[in-house]
Structure formats: C-alpha cells, structure tokens
C-alpha cells in the first residue's frame, strides 16, 4: 500500500535533477491545475460551475480522510458521520425565514464535528485493523439512525434550508454565497486552504509522528510516543475537516438528510482517495475529480451505473492497487524505484 507515501518529504535528500522534478511536481503542476480550475466559472456553464463546486467540496472531504488512511494508517469506514454532522449542524442552526450568519453557523458546525470525532475516537481507537473498520462503520450507522429516526433530525426527508448564510463584516457583504460564481471561488479558496493546512500539519512534529505510527506503530510506542493520543488527534482533525466539508455541502445544496451520512458516502470517499492514491494529498483531490467524472460518465451510459462503478472498483483493486498516482508515476518515470511496503 501507499508506495508514494515518502514522496512528499523533500528533506529526505535527493539529487539535483530530482529537485527540479520535485519543484515541477510540487509547485508548477498544482498551480497549473489551480489556474485551470479558476477558469471554470468564466468558461463553463452555470451547471458545470455547480458540479465542480460540489466536487471541490468532496475533495476537501477526501483530503480529511487521507490524513487518517494515508498518513495515520487508520482505515475508517465511517467518515461520512462527521461530514453529516457538519451539514446537520448548519441546517439545524439556520433560522426558517432569514439567512443565518456564517460567523455563527460555521464555527458551530466545525465544533460539533470536532466534539463528535473526539468522542467517537475515544471508542473506536481502542480497536485496530478489521475491528476498527467495522466499528467506525457501526458508529456512523448509529449517527445515521439518530438523524433518521428521531424528531431531532426530522426523519428521512431531512431539513431544508431556504436561505444561504450571510458572510458579512458589519453591514458589508464580503461574499454572496448565493451567487454560484462567488460560492465557487469561496470553495476553491477553502480547498487550497485545507490542502495547505494538511501539508503544514504533516510537516509538523505531530504529522511526522502520525506517519511514524502508520509505518510502525509498535516502534513508536517503544520510542515513547503516546500513540493513542496521537491517533485521537488525527481522528479529531480529520473529523473536523470532514465536518467543514459537510457544512459547505449543505450550504450548496440547501438541505441535510440522512443519506449524506450513509455508509455509501463513507465508501465513496474511501474510493476517492484510493482512486487517487492514498498518502499523497494530491491523490485525494484528483481522486474526487476522477470519481465525479466516472459517476457522470456511467450515469450517462445507464441507469444501472452503480454496476459499472462496482465493476470498476473490483478491477481497480485487482489490477491497480496503488491508485492512479501510482499508475501515473509508472507511466511518467519508466524505471520506478521499488519501495518496500509501509506495512
């Protein structure tokens, strides 16, 4: 798994030509992609602007999961729970007949997701491996039922929000989130911010320790690391960021319903990061776009598009376990340097 995990560590000494390659890969290509994205609202139709906005929100969601799966070695199958909590927090706090303030609802949504992630983390991180996968799935399902069955979540129809939140400073509207172009750029900025945030965290002592836990948890313990605390930090940060993505998602769609925290959502986001390649951050973003593209193409082909998706997943696992980033690496740099597995 995760053969590219050590790529994002420029410190680890490489020869000069490799450095220019690194520069190209770490700076030039992402900037190019960013510029391309920035042109979407200008060139594309309103429909595509909204589609790409949605995909960028999913990319933030996928980034948050990559911190867990790709950098901490925790395969969570319940990550949609925190996405959903962020969305519900927004929907529940929005008044019926007027716009909510972003300054109020956003911190509340992020806070709710953070608290939920920390609490769930205390339980699920007592387990490992297969147990962890099942327990995260089960906890997500618990939240699903809480929102689905109780009056609090208003049942299977969920909650509709009639107004976009205000983003105001005093009386001045900074960004009109109801304007799909402005919302697009807002989300794009948030995606870049989330990416840079994770990069910074990963380069910090915490991030390095998390990576160490993924590669060799036992040795981290014997080196004196409080592994549980580190995992809980990772789980909480990832859940918080997922909640943020959920908030944006609910702002865009104007509703929160139980389906957004269903296990399908958890499976799909896991699929995104694997499509792109785990432990690369870029892979998570690329995976979100590829996933959306697959979804669009398959839906255009047949109403039974999930069949095609399922078959694609199976073929992917059988023949391309390292995801697209590994595939790209294999094509671009012919003689691939063999890395031993992390595990």
């Amino acid at each position: 798994m995760n053969r590219a995990s050590d790529v994002g560590e420029p410190v680890l000494g490489a020869a000069a030509p490799a450095e220019t390659r690194l520069l190209r890969r770490e700076v030039v290509l992402p900037l190019f992609a960013l510029v391309l994205l920035a042109f979407v609202p200008i060139v594309g139709s309103a429909f595509y602007t909204e589609v790409v906005t949605r995909v960028m929100i999913l990319a933030i969601f996928a980034l948050s999961l990559d911190l867990l799966v790709g950098y901490t070695g925790l395969v969570s199958f319940g990550h949609a729970a925190f996405f959903g909590i962020g969305a519900y927090a927004y929907a529940l706090l929005s008044p019926k007949n007027e716009a909510a303030s972003l300054w109020l609802t956003l911190p509340a949504a992020i806070g709710a997701a953070a608290i939920a992630a920390a609490l769930v983390g205390v339980f699920v991180l007592r387990t490992r491996g297969i147990y962890f996968i099942m327990v995260t799935l089960a906890f997500a399902q618990m939240f699903y039922f809480v929102f689905h069955d109780t009056d609090f979540g208003r049942g299977s129809d969920g909650i509709t929000v009639n107004f976009k939140p205000d983003l105001k400073l005093g009386d001045i509207t900074l960004i009109d989130l109801g304007n799909s172009n402005q919302f697009f750029y807002f989300v794009l900025a948030m995606l870049v911010a989330a990416f840079l945030f994770l990069r910074t965290v990963l380069a910090s002592p915490l991030g390095r320790a998390l990576h160490g836990i993924k590669v060799n948890e036992h040795r981290m313990l014997s080196l004196g690391y409080h592994v549980f605390g580190y995992k809980l930090a990772s789980f909480t940060i990832a859940g918080t960021l997922a909640g943020f993505a959920g908030y944006l998602s609910a702002v865009q769609s104007g509703f929160a319903n139980p389906e957004i925290l269903s296990w399908h959502q958890s499976g799909n986001v896991l699929l995104m990061i694997i499509l792109g390649g785990t432990g690369t951050l870029y892979g998570a973003i690329g995976g979100a776009f590829v996933f959306a593209l697959l979804e669009q193409v398959f839906e255009a082909l047949t109403v039974h598009w999930q069949l095609l998706l399922g078959l694609t997943i199976i073929l992917l696992v059988l023949f391309l376990p390292g995801g697209l980033s590994e595939f790209v690496a294999r094509v671009i740099r012919k003689p691939v340097r063999e890395h031993a597995d992390d595990e």
């Binding site: 798994m1 896991l270 997943i313 199976i314 059988l318």
Partner: peptide, 10 residues
Amino acid sequence: HLQQVLLTYG
C-alpha cells in the same frame, strides 16, 4: 484491509 474493504464494497 483497505483493498479488501474496497473490493467487497464494489
């Protein structure tokens, strides 16, 4: 496990 999860999800 990640690959197992994914394939069986498919």
